[in-house]
Amino acid sequence: MKQSKWGMVVDLDKCNGCQACVVACQSENNIPLQKKSDYDENRVIQWIRVERYWEGSFPDVKAKFIPIMCQHCDEAPCEPVCPVYASYHNNEGLNVQVYNRCIGTRFCANNCPYQVRFFNFWEAEWPDSLKNQLNPDVTVRSRGIMEKCTFCVQKIRRTKRDAKVNGFEIEDGAREINPACVNSCNTEALIFGDMNNPESKISRIKAKEEKKDGRGYHLMEHYGTSPNVLYLKKVDNSKKSHSH
């Protein structure tokens, strides 16, 4: 079987900022509840967040959204700085955080230009009844370690394992393997898939949009991180009739 290389496409023209991805991620990945004090202390953990940028001012104003998650860079700046190899790259193109190796130096977070690595300053707490909802497929991170988007590696693992045991082929864009955010995306702005499979939807989009006049770009490409998340620019065909 050919080795997969996972990647994502974010179509900014479709993202409507509804944040369904953020909540879906919190639900799937046992992300601690974001308390008011977390906001006050700037210690909010959101593996995927929707950033908002104002453009213009009243009345010619618009807010634009960019969902940002771990870019799973091929040349990830977070990896070489980890003294214990807790942050490493696996052969499926995933940037992996190994919780049981992590000693909490936070070097990786400092070196990440996308600010998508989060440190657990406190033990995550849930009321007893809410613990029933925790996903047993995902580690509940303890205090003192880093965490970040995994592309829902637990779903990838589970599906690959099931495919092997039950002998079926994993379809491109199958919901069992898509990360929680992709399945929840209301507008289908997020697309996940295997970039090594030339037939996959993501490969086709990549081939089309990475051309010179395509809409594709990577976040902060000039750093040379070669991310595996491709963004498609927002199309703006508004006509400013009141500009004089």
Binding site: Y99, R101, T139, T150, R157
Partner: peptide, 8 residues
């Protein structure tokens, strides 16, 4: 023996 085989 990849880490993500068991740890995630």
């Amino acid at each position: 023996t990849d880490c993500t085989t068991c740890h995630y």
